[in-house]
């Protein structure tokens, strides 16, 4: 697996990545694991907590700006905003 930008998080990242890859190939792609509450969530929390170190480098501010720019894109790709008009206009789509 690849390294973390925060070297102190490498071990936690490795454990999470390994768990995720197993879940992705064995469950998600087979349509079994469609919830967020999967077996890797504890490992992800530990890894995320460790990544807080990146905040001190000011990366979170840059990320917030990038996320703001991506809102429209995001809505389209998450299927919440239909590019084409819905086939059944009577049924409302989205959240």
């Amino acid at each position: 697996m690849s390294q973390s930008l925060a070297p102190e998080c490498n071990e936690l990242k490795e454990r999470y990545d390994t768990c995720f890859l197993k879940w992705y190939s064995e469950k998600y792609l087979r349509g079994i694991g469609t919830t967020d509450n999967n077996e890797c969530s504890t490992l992800f929390k530990e890894y995320s907590t460790c990544l807080q170190a990146l905040k001190e480098r000011g990366i979170d501010k840059l990320l917030d700006e990038a996320r703001e720019d991506y809102k429209e894109n995001d809505a389209t790709l998450m299927g919440r905003k239909k590019c084409k008009s819905p086939r059944h206009p009577g049924i409302s789509v989205g959240i």
């Binding site: 694991g33 469609t34 919830t35 967020d36 990146l54 990320l63 790709l77 998450m78 299927g79």
Partner: peptide, 21 residues
């Protein structure tokens, strides 16, 4: 380096959304 910042599955569409740095 590649870091995963967030990861969610949309319950409606099944789309897995991931943010990485």
């Amino acid at each position: 380096a590649v870091d995963t910042l967030s990861r969610t599955v949309d319950p409606e569409t099944g789309i897995l959304r991931t943010e990485r740095l």
